[in-house]
Amino acid sequence: MSGSLAAITASTQLRRWSHALDLLESSRHLRLKPSAALYTAAIDACGAGGRWAAAVKLFDELQSMMTPDVACFGAVISAFSTGAVWERCLSTLTSMSEWRIDVNIACATEAVAASCTGQRMKISTRCRHVLVWLLLGCTEAIKVTVTLPAKEKKCFGEQAARMELLFVELSVADGSKVGVTVLSPHATIFSEHDRQQVKTAFTTQEAGPHWVCIQNDAPSAAEVLLTVLLGPEAKDYSQVAKKEHLEESQIALRRVEESLRNYHSNVLYIRAREERMRQTNDSTASRVIFFCLFNVFLMIGVGGWQMLYFKRFFRLWLRKETTSFMAACPVTAKSLAGNTSHVAPTANER
């Protein structure tokens, strides 16, 4: 089996798709059960040879035999990209979600390449059809099972834009009751206590982190299943499609539009926070500079005052000591005065 896989891989590199199909057929005659890797290599060979129809046939055979993996989907999407069949790329990405396989960057890149190889007027629409699956594959949501000890509290946060739909669902597995609180950056949006199951949805009124806090006041631990959906993931587009009679492509574009709107709101929120932080930094820097200058002038002023003070102090001290010495020794003082009177006058005194 490994030899057949290596041979088919070599055929892929040489773009000999017919030789790869012959090798796959020979493995069937030998009653060897082909693996997903073998089919993936054969699909790659067909895609490299520009035979996307043969690649689809192999992919259908693989789906009838086993569950395809992300490498198989990537190979068939690459074949569609070679043939510029963007509609089949969209259906293949849809089937990935049906098989519960996450869309990765490689599959999305190949799909974008296939969707943007048509006329210039159709590039934007086709790219939107494919980018929605990239957004769906990369959309983050919170879905966790938490074992909450007794008398403890845990919080889970999610960054939300303004006017964005937020859905919170909570259920306790063992029949215990917990308290749930949903917090916005500056207010409490929702609060319930002693509940076994909670389901709520609301539209955010301000951008920023929103927190879902679970409080277990019971004397025993509780196992909690928490689901938090945000933006397009929180909206039921099937009901919107029935109400407005929308097609699948229109629903996809609607999801992309809402995702981009939320992304733009988050960018504006981050920009506002950055501007506020810059103003705070500038204000702090100006205050620090003013404080440093004040300290410099204060030290200069205190130093000058100390010099004047000590100069005056030592003059007074010297005068006081001289007066005390003359009062204590009058004879010595008179002799000093006499010696001073007999000193010869200087030229200026003459």
Rank of each mutant, 00 (worst) to 15 (best):
M1P: 08
S4Y: 15
S4C: 10
A6T: 05
A10T: 09
L14S: 15
L14F: 04
D22R: 12
D22T: 12
L23V: 13
H29N: 05
Y39A: 00
A41D: 01
A45H: 03
A45N: 04
A53K: 15
A53R: 15
D60S: 13
E61H: 06
V70I: 13
V70G: 04
C72M: 02
F73I: 02
S81Q: 09
T82K: 14
A84G: 10
A84Y: 05
V85Q: 14
C89R: 08
S91R: 15
T92G: 02
T94I: 02
R100M: 02
V103I: 14
A106L: 05
T109W: 01
V112H: 04
M121K: 13
M121W: 03
I123D: 00
T125H: 12
H129R: 11
H129S: 07
L136C: 03
G137N: 00
T139F: 02
T139P: 00
E140D: 04
E140I: 03
A141D: 02
A141M: 04
K143Y: 00
K143I: 00
T147I: 08
P149G: 11
A150S: 15
F156C: 09
Q159S: 13
A161E: 02
R162A: 05
R162S: 07
V168Q: 06
S171A: 06
V172Q: 12
V172D: 05
G175C: 07
V180W: 08
A187Q: 15
T188R: 15
I189P: 04
E192I: 14
H193N: 14
D194C: 12
D194F: 12
Q197F: 10
V198E: 07
F202D: 01
Q205E: 10
Q205A: 13
A218H: 14
E223F: 01
L226R: 12
L226V: 11
T227D: 01
V228L: 08
G231T: 01
D236L: 03
Y237A: 02
S238G: 12
Q239V: 05
V240Y: 03
E244H: 13
H245N: 13
H245C: 10
R254N: 04
R261T: 06
R261Q: 12
H264P: 00
H264K: 14
V267Q: 12
L268D: 09
R271S: 08
R271G: 05
E275C: 06
M277W: 03
D282K: 14
D282P: 00
R287G: 04
F290Q: 14
F291R: 14
M299C: 10
I300Y: 01
G301W: 07
V302E: 05
M307K: 11
K311S: 09
R312M: 00
W317G: 02
W317K: 13
L318E: 05
T323H: 06
A344T: 10
T346P: 01
T346M: 01
N348V: 10
N348Q: 10
